[in-house]
Write a protein that binds this DNA or RNA. Structure first.
Lengths: 229, 229
DNA sequence: CAGTAATATTGATATAGATCAATCTTTTTA
DNA sequence: TAAAAAGATTGATCTATATCAATATTACTG
């Protein structure tokens, strides 16, 4: 029972894997990457396109999502210090299975995927770290899967707010510079529903909002809403 | 658009990874595993318990699922030749993040997880194969995630039937020896709804059923139902 | 093989949340 | 800075699907 269900949408710090590289390997990897800036809304990797690189986020905020026709499913949010696209390491298909886009202006390192593959094969410790990251990723997405399929809208939105607060902004008060529509995609519901629930949360003094600024005033109650569904 | 959305619930053949081992390594691995039979319904690995082994399915059929309280989310079905529990390789937590149970009587190899870890670190090619498996797994679960959140019940059930036919039983006609409740869990809906939709499918001559035996008579139409949602 | 338990089926009802439509507000741009 | 576009909000309606309740069927057990 109890066990705080961690359905958080944000990936954990991944950069640790590079510690397993030798100095020489690290130099090689650094040579085989480029740093780029992406503007708000820009797509960094498009689902279905050729995956020539692994993405490392230096600054900003990204979303990783599936799209089919007009429908979108956000798999996770990427905050700085994390990697995207490890699942394209699989030699069998080097196609991005999902899209990656920037919520805000972001700075990104694009790491050559073949060099990455080489290092995995060359350095088992590095490979082992990569496996850790992939595993944590799966667990996180699985929990999000559970949350989106088994919790109802109030719970999902409460969960999302807590997650943003705890993991992305690391503060009970934060500037949420994304549209309601994007919030709705994150929580897996309609835009109108997000608005109505946020209003309800305000009325019940669980949060307070001015402009894009949100403050979580009663995290205990929000947690309870998560847990009850 | 087009692109047959592969939201299949069944894992692919995984056994390939062992090909990357040396003879000596393979012998070591074989020494560090035991073969066991599990009866229908038995739990092979319980979410939250200590993950001391990786599961390899020789014969039978398994389900991998999350549980919280009374709620269950089936992540995937495992057919023979596949591994379960790779995500527990992560050194940081050797706890099963999900449960694994047998649909039918099943024969399973339990492989010592530390030996597995050792081989990953020792043999980068093996590690690379393991990464492939983890990646394919993620992709598959992500697609199932999309399916369960974005398709409605008719589409989900059609998808499931096609998947069972194509991947598990490898035939348009098969004996589906699981309860309606379990079917419902797989398709992410209520038992009653499964029954009603199966009835509708029969009326429209898309499938025919006698007892536990199901035959898909019009897979084209079923595919169309999947795609339209 | 009778009796009980488990599962399947059918119908009626309730509801969360989507969708649609209209207005208001903010942001962008020319 | 005025006009247009994009986004936010509110209310009304609709519907897919869960839930509840009753009965039928199948499977199990002593």
């Amino acid at each position: 029972m109890a066990a705080a269900l961690s359905s958080c949408t944000v990936a954990d710090d991944h950069c640790k894997c590079f510690e397993a590289l030798t100095d020489k390997q690290r130099v090689l990897l650094e040579k085989k990457q480029v740093t780029l800036e992406f503007k708000k809304g820009e797509i960094i990797g498009k689902q279905g396109s050729f995956a020539s690189h692994i993405i490392f986020l230096c600054e900003g905020l990204l979303k990783v999502y599936l799209e089919h026709g007009n429908e979108v499913l956000i798999l996770k949010i990427i905050s700085p210090g994390n990697l995207v696209g490890l699942s394209s390491l699989s030699e069998s298909d080097d196609i991005f299975q999902y899209s990656t886009a920037a919520y805000h202006n972001s700075i990104v390192n694009l790491i050559d995927i073949n060099t990455f593959r080489l290092l995995v094969r060359e350095n088992g410790h590095f490979a082992s770290k990569v496996i850790n990251i992939l595993s944590e990723n799966s667990n996180q997405i699985n929990n999000r899967f559970f949350c989106l399929t088994h919790r109802q809208s109030y719970g999902r939105l409460a969960d999302l707010l807590l997650c943003l607060s705890k993991r992305v902004f690391k503060s009970a008060e934060f500037e949420l510079d994304i549209t309601r529509k994007e919030l709705a995609e994150l929580a897996g519901m309609s835009t109108e529903n997000v608005i109505r629930i946020l209003k309800k949360f305000q009325e019940e003094k669980l949060i307070s909002m001015k402009g894009k600024r949100i403050e979580l005033s009663n995290t205990t109650a929000l947690h309870r809403i998560c847990d009850l569904g």
